[in-house]
C-alpha cells in the first residue's frame, strides 16, 4: 500500500487526503451508530420501570425517572442473576479446559500415529463441524439425561463431544507443521509418550491453545440451546437461559431489570475484549484460515 503512494503525483495525493478525511468522518459516524444499541440499553437500564415504554425508549433518564442502580440490585437479588453468572462461568471454564486438554492430546496422537483409526477420527471431526445442532439436539438431550450428564458440573463432557471437531481440527492443523525431530530426540533420551507430550509438545502448542480457547469460549459462554435442552431449567439457569426466561415466563416482563441483566452480561464481555483484543482477533483469524 505505502509503496504504491510513491507513484502518485502531488495533485492525486491531495485528492487522496480529501478522500481519507471524508472516510474518517464517515467511519467515526458509523462507529457511533454501531455502539448506539448498547448505549440505548444502558440508559434505559437506569430508568424506573414505569418510565420505560416503546415510545419513550430514546429519551435520556430524567430526574423523575432516574433510579440509579435500582434495576441492577433488583435483578441480582430477586432474580438470582448472580447464580446464573456462576453457572455460566463454571460451565465455560470446565468445558474449555477439558476441550483444550483432551483435544490437544488427541490431535497430537492423530498426527504422530497415522493409520486407519486416526484418519477416521479426523474425518469424523471435520464432518461434525458441518452438522447443525438441530440434527442431534433431541437425541443428545435424551442421551445426556440417561447418562446423568445434566448438571453444570459435568455438562463439560457433552461440550467436549460436540466441540471436539473444531479443536481437534485446529490442533492437527498446527501439529502437521511441527518437525518431529525434537520429540524423537526426547524419546531416545528415555522420555515416554506422556512426558514428551507435556514437556515438549504442550508448550509448543500455546498459540493454538489461545486461539482455540477463544473460539470455544465465545461459543460455550453464549450458547443457549444446548444447556436449555440438557440442564433442568428450574434448578440451573445459565445467562442466556436467564435472559430468555424473562420473556418466556408468564406475566408482565419487567423491562428495567431485564435491561440491567443485559448490561451485566455485556459489560464483562466488553471489558474482557478491550484487554485481550489482540488475542481475540488473532484467534478469529487463525480459526477462519484453518476452517
Amino acid at each position: 500500500m505505502t509503496k504504491a503512494k510513491v507513484y502518485h503525483d502531488g495533485a492525486v495525493s491531495g485528492a487522496r487526503r480529501a478522500v481519507d478525511a471524508v472516510m474518517t468522518v464517515l467511519l467515526a459516524a458509523l462507529c457511533i451508530v454501531w455502539i448506539y444499541p448498547v448505549f440505548l440499553i444502558l440508559i434505559n437500564s437506569l430508568k424506573a420501570e414505569t418510565a420505560i415504554s416503546t415510545t419513550s425508549v430514546f429519551e435520556l433518564p430524567t430526574a423523575a425517572s432516574f433510579v440509579g442502580l435500582g434495576n441492577y440490585i433488583y435483578g441480582i437479588t430477586k432474580l438470582n442473576f448472580l447464580s446464573s453468572f456462576c453457572y455460566s462461568l463454571i460451565i465455560t471454564v470446565t468445558s474449555v479446559v477439558l476441550i483444550l486438554l483432551c483435544c490437544s492430546m488427541c490431535g497430537w496422537y492423530i498426527t504422530r500415529v497415522p493409520g486407519i483409526f486416526s484418519q477416521a477420527m479426523y474425518l469424523l471431526c471435520v464432518f461434525s463441524m458441518v452438522v447443525p445442532f438441530q440434527m442431534v439436539m433431541f437425541t443428545l438431550s435424551k442421551t445426556a439425561d440417561s447418562l446423568r450428564l445434566n448438571t453444570p458440573f459435568n455438562i463439560a463432557i457433552i461440550y467436549l463431544g460436540f466441540g471436539a471437531g473444531l479443536a481437534v481440527f485446529m490442533f492437527t492443523g498446527f501439529m502437521k507443521s511441527v518437525p518431529i525431530a525434537v520429540e524423537e530426540a526426547a524419546m531416545i533420551d528415555g522420555c515416554n509418550a506422556l512426558q514428551i507430550f507435556f514437556r515438549i509438545v504442550f508448550p509448543i502448542l500455546k498459540p493454538t491453545m489461545i486461539s482455540t480457547a477463544i473460539l470455544e469460549t465465545m461459543w460455550v459462554w453464549n450458547d443457549y440451546l444446548l444447556p436449555t435442552l440438557v440442564l433442568d431449567i428450574k434448578k440451573y439457569r445459565t445467562i442466556p437461559m436467564a435472559i430468555q426466561y424473562f420473556r418466556g415466563s408468564y406475566g408482565k416482563v419487567e423491562m428495567g431489570p431485564m435491561m440491567a441483566c443485559i448490561m451485566i452480561t455485556v459489560l464483562p464481555i466488553i471489558i474482557m475484549y478491550l484487554f485481550c483484543q489482540k488475542y481475540i482477533i488473532e484467534g478469529v483469524i487463525a480459526g477462519a484460515v484453518k476452517g
Partner: peptide
C-alpha cells in the same frame, strides 16, 4: 490416555 477421552465424549456427544 490420548485418544480415548475425546473419542468417548465424541461418541456420547455426537
Amino acid at each position: 490416555v490420548f485418544l480415548l477421552p475425546t473419542f468417548a465424549a465424541f461418541v456420547i456427544g455426537f
